Amino acid sequence: MGELFETLSENPLAVAIVLCEVGFWVVLAGGLVARYLLRLRRTSAVLLVSTPLLDLALLVITVVDLRGGGEASAVHGLGAAYLGFSVAFGHSLIRWADQRFAHRFAGGPPPVKPPKRGPARLAHEWREWGKCVLACAIACAVMALLSFVVGTPERTEALWQPPGGWMPRLGIVTAIWFVAGPLWTLLSSGTRDYERDRA
């Protein structure tokens, strides 16, 4: 725990990432409370729509940090990855929280659960993997932007240089997600169909 606080104290960007993540959930909770408990739909809409501003703030902080002469590090790559996944999965997270909050506090229907098997499950896995691809593409675009802003490749090697750079890491994440998601679901569905036909 002490090492974590030391890392945060030495790296303002790491603090910004933590604050953006905490801020997302605080703004989301505030928006849902305003909608379902306080009946302030306009205030709720403003709060929920403003969540992308946190991502924009993090991007600005990252650019300013590098423009000030800083050298890209693993934290900058983490910030870009956070931005990508926040943009790609943010709407899904809001919908997930909204369904559960409405069911718990406003008598809404039970939350929709992902299908467990069959073509619907496979389609679900493809959609989730597509979001992963989008998230990684956004993160790589952000890192490319940071490299362009810095203008010195040597200062941004932590972002793109294999094997430890963040771009190769995101490629690995995409491949693992594909194998554990759509491919595994497709193969397991084929195995079940084969066993059912034999029976």
Rank of each mutant, 00 (worst) to 15 (best):
M1H: 06
E3F: 06
L4M: 14
F5R: 11
L8K: 05
S9N: 14
E10W: 01
L19Q: 08
L28N: 03
A29V: 09
G30N: 02
L32S: 03
A34K: 01
R39D: 13
R41N: 12
L48M: 00
P52C: 07
P52W: 10
L56C: 11
L56G: 15
I61L: 15
V64P: 06
V64D: 15
D65L: 02
R67E: 12
R67C: 06
G68T: 02
G70S: 08
E71N: 07
S73K: 02
V75S: 04
H76M: 05
G77S: 09
G77R: 06
A80K: 01
A80S: 03
V87D: 05
A88I: 00
G90A: 04
S92V: 10
L93Y: 12
A97Y: 04
A102V: 05
G107D: 03
G107V: 03
P111F: 03
V112N: 02
K113L: 15
K116A: 14
G118N: 05
G118E: 08
L122F: 11
L122E: 12
E125S: 10
E125Q: 14
W126D: 03
E128G: 00
C132I: 03
A137K: 04
A137T: 10
A137Q: 03
M143A: 05
L145P: 00
F148N: 05
F148W: 08
G151R: 10
P153G: 01
P153T: 00
E154H: 09
E157K: 15
E157I: 11
E157Q: 15
A158D: 07
Q161E: 12
P162H: 09
G164D: 09
P168W: 02
W177Q: 07
F178K: 07
A180V: 14
A180I: 11
W184G: 03
L186R: 14
L187Y: 11
L187I: 13
S189P: 04
D193I: 15
E195Q: 12
